[in-house]
């Protein structure tokens, strides 16, 4: 546990000591701020907007497709590039402790970022009377979605020493899993069901509506666990290369 914390704490220090984290945070807040405002400020297309965060939640998942890999791509790729992995892997640290520590750091940063968005619901509660249910469930869904996206990023950063490759491959996987449910409309029967069940986005929608379904929670936790497991195996395999 102490080692996981040490690995995580080191990465958190690096996050806050380098510009990339601030850039990611800034982009996230600016974009989500725009989409939040579009959702709640009356306009020609939407003269009577609802006091809800549904627009913010919907767009946040799309923005995370780009930003979650930006948070994880450095974590192990850089160690491999700089050779610091040699000292990491020759320290008495287990492979899963390394992966979980680094993952915990990226999750902490994501949570901090989401914490800063809490002023959107705060504004709603001050100036309107929103339904709190979808707000709670939406945040839960967003955290779960983000956790899964970061786990995908952990796998790609473990298998390459190139940060750019790690980032883009993760983006590709997250985007594919997010949008795959669109293709289910083209198919029928079992394959359609299968494809829509695989997709990240199709499991997120209920959270935005205020529904907390165990099925979706299990889905996101499973995706997270599977990709973290693969990352640990990839790191183990790295020793044998």
């Amino acid at each position: 546990m102490r080692t996981i914390r040490a690995v995580a704490w080191k990465e958190i220090q690096v996050y806050f000591g380098t510009p990339i984290a601030y850039i990611v945070g800034l982009i996230f807040l600016v974009l989500t701020g725009i989409f939040f405002a579009i959702g709640v400020v009356p306009s020609e297309n939407n003269p009577f907007p609802e006091a809800s965060l549904s627009n913010f939640f919907q767009w946040s998942t799309t923005i995370l497709i780009l930003l979650a890999p930006a948070l994880t791509m450095r974590l192990l790729a850089e160690e491999q590039k700089l050779g610091t992995i040699e000292l990491l892997l020759t320290s008495p640290v287990r492979d899963w402790e390394i992966i979980l520590g680094k993952y915990a750091a990226s999750l902490t940063f994501l949570l901090a970022m989401l914490l800063l968005t809490l002023y959107y619901p705060l504004l709603l509660f001050i100036f309107a009377d929103p339904d709190p249910g979808p707000i709670y469930s939406g945040y839960l869904g967003l955290v779960l979605y983000g956790a899964a996206a970061l786990a995908i990023g952990m796998l790609t950063t473990t298998i390459t020493s190139n940060q750019i490759v790690a980032g883009f491959v993760a983006m590709g996987i997250i985007a594919a899993l997010s949008f795959v449910h669109f293709s289910s409309e083209l198919l029928g029967g079992f394959s359609a069901l299968l494809i829509s069940e695989i997709g990240l986005q199709s499991h997120f929608e209920d959270f935005g509506r205020g529904v907390i379904d165990t099925k979706h929670i299990v889905y996101f936790l499973s995706v997270t666990a599977v990709f973290l497991f693969l990352a640990i195996r990839a790191l183990e395999f790295r020793r044998w290369r």
């Binding site: 102490r2 080692t3 690995v7 610091t84 040699e86 008495p92």
Partner: peptide, 20 residues
């Protein structure tokens, strides 16, 4: 190979913790 973005003492503290 060292973590170039860390100060010397933080780095040593990190390595010490990794070594338990």
């Amino acid at each position: 190979p060292l973590h170039t973005e860390m100060p010397v003492t933080s780095y040593l503290k990190y390595m010490g913790t990794l070594r338990g």
